[in-house]
Design a protein around this nucleic acid. Structure first.
Lengths: 211, 211
DNA sequence: GTCTATACTACGATAGAC
DNA sequence: GTCTATCGTAGTATAGAC
């Protein structure tokens, strides 16, 4: 379908070059059609961009759904169950950001640097719920009642993952590799899982030091 | 000085909007001059962009110098000294990325998503040396001899910091704040320092589990 | 050195043929 | 629905006045 092809190429182009960097003519040409098809199907460049954002949010949401269900918050959840759920969600998120079309991650990172309406769509429809769930799970896993402390911790946890794509060029240089292959990715995933465990442990230890 | 004013504004504009998103006319107007001044002083948009990259690398290098000297690698360095040095360097890097003109961080993150010659200048003249130093310090601090394991760990450590700016919009939403004020920044810095400590401890524990 | 004026290119939007 | 043709705008580069 032409509409789908346009959208796929748009996500790749917008992710790689940004909203201004990508051109409707280039996207249309790559899709083997005329530029005015974009106007017809999406109303223009902006419309295509927002459609790309919606598609990304939907795809990631779908991909993350099983892990989120597994971490569904229940009243009597134990700390160890919450920790397992955090690990599951993070692992799935690494997979989503690492193996799925890397344009997804680039698109999202770009939006955060220069937020437009697309950011609200992605955050409101996906990222917000995801983050708040993790915050709650971290609270249960560590027993830390201060929400701010949990939010800050979640940001650092997620930062490790976002870095995978946002700082990909640096990562590749440091690891002296041409691309983030499966080996490197699984090593990073293992490191992040161990880090998460260590950080949660540390947060529990901190709690016992509090007055 | 006009040249300096142009450069400062260029860094802000390129950081905020990217190479394609920023316009020479806009930069010149903001600097209170004509667009052709950019051609005269920097040879064109690309020249201005590369000059911005060089300036950023030089500024960050200068800002990081004291911390790096403190962590200068010496043959008989103890694990605890190396750990202190890692913490100093990361703390200084947080300060650089958080308090210094945030355009610096945005510029660097953008370059990593779509590397041009500017990335080589920043990585070659600054980031490479910085990262390799931290890798070596982590190796000494943890006793882990596998360089790959140390590199991966350093990437996750740095990821926490890069996130501060790369995912700023998400961070602000989750923390329900209008801006990353001093309080939030110091809470994040404290969390990252504690995380780093916990991660290094974990790496030492892992070493003892290895065959 | 700095500015004005101009040339040229590429973009996005739109109208109209098929 | 899709394409061609055209318009207006905004971008960079360049030449020349001061």
């Amino acid at each position: 379908m032409l509409q789908q092809r346009l959208l796929d190429i748009a996500i790749a182009e917008f992710g790689a070059k940004g909203l201004e960097g990508a051109s409707t003519r280039g996207i249309a040409k790559a899709a083997g059609t005329a530029m005015s098809s974009i106007t017809y199907h999406y109303g223009g460049k902006e419309g295509l961009y927002l459609a790309a954002a919606d598609h990304i949010a939907a795809q990631i949401g779908e991909h993350m759904a099983p892990a989120l269900e597994l971490g569904a918050l229940s009243p009597g959840m134990t700390a160890s169950a919450a920790r397992t759920a955090v690990q599951h969600i993070l692992a799935r998120f690494i997979e989503t950001m690492g193996t799925k079309n890397s344009a997804f991650s680039l698109f999202i990172v770009r939006e955060q640097m220069e937020p437009t309406e697309a950011f609200d769509r992605i955050y409101g429809g996906l990222m917000g719920k995801l983050l708040e769930t993790i915050v709650e799970l971290v609270r249960i896993a560590t027993g830390r009642q201060d929400p701010f402390a949990c939010e800050v911790a979640v940001l650092t946890l997620m930062g490790q993952i976002v870095m995978l794509r946002a700082s990909c060029a640096t990562a590749l240089k440091l690891l002296r590799r041409p691309s983030l292959d499966a080996d490197a990715l699984s090593a990073l995933a293992a490191r992040i899982a161990a880090n998460t465990d260590a950080i949660l442990d540390r947060m529990i230890a901190e709690r016992q030091e509090l007055p």
